[in-house]
Amino acid sequence: MQKAFKVVIFIISLSLILTSCVSKRDITYFQNDQIDQTKVSNSYKTILKPDDLLQITISALDFESVKSFNLPAVNFSTTTNNAVGSPQQQSYLIDNNGYIDFPVIGKLKIGGLTRNQTIDLLKDKLDPDYVKNPTINIRIANYSVTILGDVRRPGTYTIPNERITILEAIGLAGDLNITGKRNTIKVFREINGKKVEFSIDLRSNKIFTSPVYYLQQNDLVYVDQNKSSSQDAAFNRNTGLFVSIGSIIVSLIAVLTR
């Protein structure tokens, strides 16, 4: 009986070891492929999209001429109808059709444009009728990316400088857990109103030439669990079942070896 029990314990332990081992080649970054320097680019363009919240500042030598385009946003008390708190810079939300409602000028379609294209559009509308030689600064106030799945600190992260690589985003999330799959990192991005899925392999240097190496606002990065982690989770959920099966096996062996 004792011998049979030891045999069963050995078989179960061996099975757990074999299914939970993680190979070094499955977790080491940048181990495969050479970097194709001809395809590496440091250029990055921010594309404005619906639901972006913009802060647009117009400056010029003639201070009076830009006042109408730098309206402060204030809160009003519901009881006294007076402004409360400190005025803040007005923000402009791009609607589902790509438009903002800009002071004096009215509706402007900027969804799908780059920052520089939007600046050129505003300059064309303002100069010379309203503001001569304006300087225009545009910032996305709600620029963020989301990292979910098998990472140490999943969540949504605000990016103040509006420029982040997928490696930097993973760094913000505390890196992948040892059980995270390196070879099928998924990136979901909205392009022309449609959700597009990309897949990258952190083990390969081809990541540096990937179209999602530089993330865009509202990108979603998802890290799946590797097979051994999923098996471990399944084992933990079914521990009671395994114990029962083991007991039955031990009993059968004991009966058959009498």
Rank of each mutant, 00 (worst) to 15 (best):
N142A: 00
I249Y: 02
V223D: 00
I94D: 01
S229R: 15
G193A: 04
P72M: 09
V196T: 15
F198G: 01
P134Y: 05
L71T: 11
G98F: 06
V66F: 10
L16M: 13
V212Q: 01
Y222E: 12
T57Q: 08
L93Y: 08
I245R: 06
Q90Y: 09
S13L: 14
S229P: 00
T118E: 02
F102Q: 03
Q2L: 11
D101M: 15
I56Y: 04
L241H: 05
Y143C: 00
R25F: 06
G149Q: 07
I136R: 02
Q231P: 00
L71R: 06
N142Y: 11
S23C: 03
V74N: 13
T38A: 13
A4G: 04
D232P: 00
T179C: 03
N137A: 12
I253P: 00
A83C: 09
P72K: 09
L252W: 12
K125I: 04
S144K: 14
I12Y: 05
G98H: 07
Y143M: 03
R153P: 00
I185H: 01
T257M: 14
L14I: 12
Q34W: 06
G98S: 00
K3D: 05
I94R: 02
I12S: 06
E190M: 11
T38V: 09
I138Q: 04
I94N: 01
N81K: 15
A4S: 10
Q2P: 00
Q2W: 07
D150W: 04
T165D: 08
R152F: 12
G193D: 06
D95I: 12
V40G: 06
I9W: 03
K206C: 00
Y143K: 04
D129R: 10
P87L: 11
Q34G: 00
K206E: 11
R152A: 10
G171W: 04
I136N: 01
K181T: 07
P87V: 10
F63C: 01
I164R: 11
R153M: 12
F5S: 07
I164V: 14
D224Q: 14
T78R: 15
V212E: 02
F63Y: 09
D232A: 08
I166H: 05
I159N: 06
I249Q: 01
S43M: 06
I110H: 00
V131D: 07
L122Y: 08
V196N: 07
F69Q: 01
N96E: 13
N96L: 12
L202C: 06
G193T: 08
T209C: 01
D224E: 15
I105K: 05
D62K: 14
G106M: 13
Q89E: 14
V145S: 03
I35H: 10
P50G: 05
L61N: 14
T156G: 10
I207D: 02
D232G: 03
D33M: 04
P134W: 06
M1V: 09
Q90G: 05
S204R: 08
N70R: 05
L16N: 11
M1R: 08
Y130H: 11
D129G: 09
V151Q: 05
I245N: 08
V7Q: 08
K6F: 14
N183H: 14
A234I: 12
L121Q: 14
N183M: 10
N82W: 05
L53F: 07
N236T: 13
T78V: 12
F242T: 08
Q225N: 09
S144N: 12
P128F: 08
R237D: 12
Y130A: 05
P154G: 00
I164H: 04
N236S: 15
